Amino acid sequence: MSRPTAPDRAQYRMRYRDVFDRPASSRLAMPAMVMLATSILVFGLVDLDFSPARLWSGVHQLGWISLMMLPPDPGSSLPLYLKALGETLSIALLGTTLAAGLAFPVSLLAARNIVRSGVVRFPVRRFLDSIRGVDTLIWALVWINVVGLGPFAGVLAIAVSDFGALGKLFSEAIESADRRQVEGIRASGGNALHEIRFGLIPQVLPVIAGQILYFIESNTRSATIIGIVGAGGIGLQLAEQIRVLEWQKVSFLILMILIAVAAIDWMSSKLRFAIIGRRAVA
């Protein structure tokens, strides 16, 4: 391919002046952003008292703790730990199920293709945003003060937190549904409820089921964290063993959590593929 001649280059420069003769503000924008980001990073490190010596000391301490964790040993507390793990799994399952059951009807009110009026849809969406904006750990602290310590507070914390997140995800799945099936129900004489029941729900049900399964897996970890603040489950046992420096028991509890999360991930993957496969066949 031949190089353009001088007249061609002049012609290109005249035609694409915004490319060849960019203003100084456009040329300096990227370097300025890089310098700003670097300055913020350096300021943050200095303001937070970042020190390589402290980091090296912390790594040394972490290595010592890791050696103290070997080998994992539950001692005589294995039945107690198994019961605590069962509580954690129950908190995750019950909290997610309760959140999904409450979020689905609300998500219909937040979906643009179900509720046309912004007067109704806007406050519902902002309500879901406000619920979702508070972390599960904060909800756990709130419910512990309301209903007391124990797994019940953990279930309520996960249910309220996931209510906002699932409501948003469900409404987005409903909005992305194919309108042709809904129009077919309407053309055959169906009413609005028939459109939702036979036109929308069969389309979004596999997506919703996959989201619920993922949240159950994620909430197994969340239930462990909120257990540390008194919401029951294996997190409470983990916090107690860290407090008394029983590192072998700590490593055993961590191993139990990892195995449980891996097993739930494997089962949820099988269920998701089964649901998708059944949907494809249908």
Rank of each mutant, 00 (worst) to 15 (best):
residue 25 S to H: 12
residue 41 L to H: 09
residue 233 G to N: 03
residue 183 E to F: 07
residue 75 G to I: 10
residue 50 F to M: 09
residue 179 R to I: 15
residue 250 V to I: 04
residue 225 I to F: 06
residue 92 A to F: 02
residue 142 V to P: 03
residue 22 R to V: 13
residue 53 A to F: 10
residue 236 L to F: 12
residue 52 P to S: 10
residue 203 Q to W: 04
residue 1 M to H: 05
residue 156 L to N: 14
residue 123 P to I: 02
residue 219 N to A: 01
residue 262 A to M: 12
residue 132 R to P: 05
residue 119 V to L: 15
residue 161 S to N: 14
residue 106 V to C: 03
residue 137 L to C: 07
residue 187 A to V: 03
residue 202 P to D: 00
residue 249 K to P: 11
residue 57 S to C: 03
residue 261 V to I: 14
residue 223 A to V: 02
residue 264 I to C: 05
residue 60 H to Y: 07
residue 87 E to G: 07
residue 133 G to H: 05
residue 180 R to E: 12
residue 72 P to H: 03
residue 67 L to H: 06
residue 207 V to I: 09
residue 218 S to E: 01
residue 115 V to K: 11
residue 282 A to N: 11
residue 166 L to W: 08
residue 67 L to E: 04
residue 33 M to F: 15
residue 62 L to T: 14
residue 76 S to P: 06
residue 271 L to Y: 02
residue 49 D to A: 13
residue 233 G to E: 01
residue 183 E to I: 00
residue 258 L to V: 09
residue 128 L to N: 06
residue 86 G to N: 02
residue 169 L to N: 03
residue 220 T to N: 00
residue 192 A to G: 07
residue 46 V to T: 13
residue 100 A to L: 07
residue 217 E to W: 00
residue 207 V to A: 03
residue 211 Q to T: 05
residue 104 F to H: 07
residue 106 V to G: 04
residue 203 Q to M: 06
residue 97 T to A: 12
residue 92 A to H: 02
residue 262 A to S: 12
residue 72 P to Y: 01
residue 29 A to M: 13
residue 210 G to M: 00
residue 267 M to Y: 06
residue 225 I to R: 06
residue 66 S to C: 09
residue 56 W to A: 15
residue 244 V to D: 01
residue 15 R to T: 04
residue 192 A to I: 15
residue 218 S to H: 01
residue 193 L to N: 06
